[in-house]
Simulated scan of single mutants.
Amino acid sequence: MEQELHFDSIISFIRGMYPEKSYVGLHEPVFCGNERKYVLDAIDSTYVSSVGSYVNLFEEMMAKITGTRYAVAIVNGTNALHIALMLAGVTRGEEVITQALTFIATANAISYNGAYPVFVDVDNDTLGMSPEALSSFLANNVVKKSDGAYNKITGRRIAACVPMHTFGLPCRIDEIRQICDNWNIPLVEDAAESLGSYYDGKHTGSFGLVGVFSFNGNKTVTSGGGGAIVTDDECIARRAKHLTTQAKVPHRWDFVHDEIGYNFRMPNLNAAFACAQLEQLDKFISDKRLLAKAYEDFFGRIGVPFMKEIPEATANYWLNAILFQDRTHRDSFLAFSNNNGVMTRPVWELMTRLKMFRDCQSDGLSNSIWIADRLVNIPSGFRSR
């Protein structure tokens, strides 16, 4: 009952953060830079599809921002993760360890490769994969062989591990990397939500063999639809670009394709938009971190847990989140806030609660279940323009 008494004050505080809005959305994009100029320039150039100067510039900017050697522009984050898993060597009938507390794109991308997701728990303070849970699962269920790690129950090879930096809060990715290295399991980072987030001063997405980002309409930086793969491996970067361009052998006029490829390259129009947004990344992150600090102070005063970065991390706070004492209070607040012109939402349904993945192996997911019953995302959009 105590938390219910705060519903009015929470809504009032959120509205005070966005005084000019009659309806407060969850995360609306802001276009206050060179978006229109660059898009019109791309149109005037007539290069509006997957070839153009802005695609090249976008890749250069992403590599510089993430501190990686290479970036490859992809049409969206889901396709980027699909290809990233292929690049890591995932094939049909194998298994990929990930977290159940994630957006469905993570599990879908595993399925696109004909692989089976295996779900391990998250840490309560990061919402990302728990190194302890990963280590325990491997110790109890997996055996090392000369050609990799194998699930003792299913007999399938563990082809990759995909942790996610949930809502832009970095998980303990250094520990996860060490565990994966020890077990010879390729690490693919789902950094879709964490552009501008760092762990120990190193950008998310740059710890694994490959990292993946999304530029969907509700992300910190958007291109309407878009994604990126980043890596330090030149061969992987070249193959990523080849596979996502229909595996066409470069030639001025011949159309020869040397394997099954995909039409997954980001169009120049989207890249132009993304470049203008990336130019404003520092301003966007500064604004979002100020908002998160205001939320942290407010919710601390009224005794409602607010999800914040761990000491080793610097988060972009893509989506801010609070925790209620149980599912009943969570649902009551969701109804109250949305009925009063403030958009809030629960975390995604756990993957193991969806019919497609309910039979997948998991470790019990005690933290994930606890969080899923209590977490609410609150408005996290930009306030400065």
Rank of each mutant, 00 (worst) to 15 (best):
G33M: 05
D233A: 04
T78I: 12
G155Y: 09
V249I: 15
K145T: 15
Y150I: 15
P311Q: 08
A271W: 02
K293I: 14
K202I: 15
S45F: 11
I10H: 00
D200A: 11
L209A: 06
R172Y: 11
V55L: 03
V304N: 00
N367T: 15
S384R: 08
S22P: 00
D254R: 09
P311E: 13
I185P: 01
L138Q: 03
R374W: 08
L87P: 00
A372V: 07
I185R: 03
H251D: 15
S130V: 13
A192Q: 05
M61A: 08
A228W: 02
P131H: 06
I43S: 04
G33E: 06
A84F: 05
E132V: 15
W348Y: 13
P163S: 07
Y23M: 10
F13I: 12
S50D: 14
S197M: 05
G261F: 08
E59M: 02
H82P: 03
V210E: 02
G225H: 07
E132H: 09
F357M: 02
Y112L: 12
F273M: 12
N270Q: 12
S368N: 07
N367C: 14
D282S: 11
P19L: 10
F137V: 09
W370L: 11
T46N: 06
A294I: 07
H165Y: 07
V221F: 02
T68M: 01
F255N: 12
P311V: 13
L169R: 00
V51A: 06
T222N: 04
L26S: 03
G155H: 04
M343L: 15
F58M: 11
I260M: 10
F284T: 12
D125H: 11
R36W: 13
V39E: 04
D147L: 09
S9A: 14
G33F: 08
V143L: 09
I74Y: 01
G341V: 11
V118T: 10
C171D: 08
